[in-house]
């Protein structure tokens, strides 16, 4: 059953690294699953845990965040704050009963086109195996949203 399931994944990509990495993967014609919808940010440091939780309650099956490697964030430590927030948010998800694996953080530099394709492939596969996000169905279906 899980093989037919086509997960919806929201990706937050940093403008300076991962977004460029995605671009590179694209122009190099690398294949990766078309399940991601991208939101470009100037830095992963912009991400509020609420963005992640909100996406999950609104029916997204997985959230991918990709930013610059530690030490390479254009604003110094934005990515490091995000790493901490992601650690907390994974616990938050776990504690209310959402698989923490639905949230994934990766570092992808502008030159790492192949890595970007790999990250998306792996995360899509993992989300596929997890199946549809139960939070969305449980909380919204009955309200007809």
């Amino acid at each position: 059953m899980s093989n037919d399931f086509d997960p919806k994944i929201l990706a937050f990509l940093c403008n300076w690294c991962s977004y460029a990495g995605a671009d590179l993967a694209g122009v190099s014609r690398m294949q990766y699953p078309p399940n991601i919808r991208v939101i470009r940010l100037m830095c992963t440091g912009r991400i509020d845990p609420i963005f992640i939780i909100n996406a999950l309650t609104r029916g997204v099956d997985g959230v991918l965040i990709a930013g610059c490697h530690p030490g390479e964030c254009h604003y110094g430590k934005g990515n490091l704050y995000t790493r901490r927030r992601v650690l907390m948010t994974k616990k938050l998800l776990e504690c209310i009963g959402i698989e923490p694996e639905r949230l994934h953080l990766a570092w992808v530099a502008a030159s790492e086109g192949p890595k970007f394709a790999e990250v998306v492939k792996e995360f899509t596969e993992e989300t596929k195996n997890l199946g549809p996000n139960p939070l969305a169905t449980l909380t919204r279906e009955e309200k007809g949203k």
Binding site: H69, P70, G71, K77, L80, Y81, R83, R84, R85, V86, L87, M88, L105, A106, W107
Partner: peptide
């Protein structure tokens, strides 16, 4: 507070899942 601080040391830790 742990969510509004980072240490310089973390600049040198690469894995996305440990600090």
């Amino acid at each position: 507070p742990p969510l509004t601080t980072v240490t310089d040391q973390e600049l040198f830790i690469d894995p996305p899942d440990i600090i």
